[in-house]
Amino acid sequence: MTENGTTTNILISGVGGQGVLLASYVLGQAAMKEGYEVKQSEVHGMSQRGGSVVSHLRFGERLASPIVTQGTADFLLSFEPLEALRFFNWLRPGALLIYNTLRVNPSTVAAGLATYPDGIHERIAQAWPNSRGIDATLLAEEAGTAKATNIVMLGSIARELPFPLETWRHIIGRVVPPKTVDTNMKAFELGRAAGR
């Protein structure tokens, strides 16, 4: 890890509209609540129009850059398999990749101009053995709505991070719409159970 050995670098990748930025926000707030210095960076712009979205999140005792350097990420949290395969080489050797198994076609595939890679899960496992696929969207539906997929994904990485459960619950409760708190808490728990 960089500088003084206490920085955690997380890269979150996905598709515009999947809630990548909200997930990153929750992680940042949780890290701040635990007393860490936090830096975060993302490129929005046309992200809502279904393009790839990446958010960088770093926390630790002292850090300078808001962006993660390729090859130094401690975790890659991908909301879509193709976006996992696109970014796995941002991880440092041995680091953990968690991804949502539900495929979302890029526009190039929808228009019949490109094909979605065959056997994507095998390719991910081969490219990055320390990876876990999670049916996050299914779990979110089980919790009540597919919209909670990003919260399931947060749950799936929760055990790896030094934040107590109350912190997660507190921050998630604050950022999701009031009516959906229970659903999102359930989604978080399902993600946590699946993240083992």
Binding site: V15, G16, M46, S47, R49, G50, G51, S52, Q70, G71, L82, E83, L85, R86, F87, F88, N89, W90, P106, S107, T108, V109, A110, A114, T115, Y116, P117, R123, A127
Partner: peptide, 14 residues
């Protein structure tokens, strides 16, 4: 950084 996966379809905004 190590090599990435080759030949992946792009995901441009649409």
């Amino acid at each position: 950084p190590g090599p990435g996966a080759e030949g992946l379809p792009m995901r441009p905004p649409t």
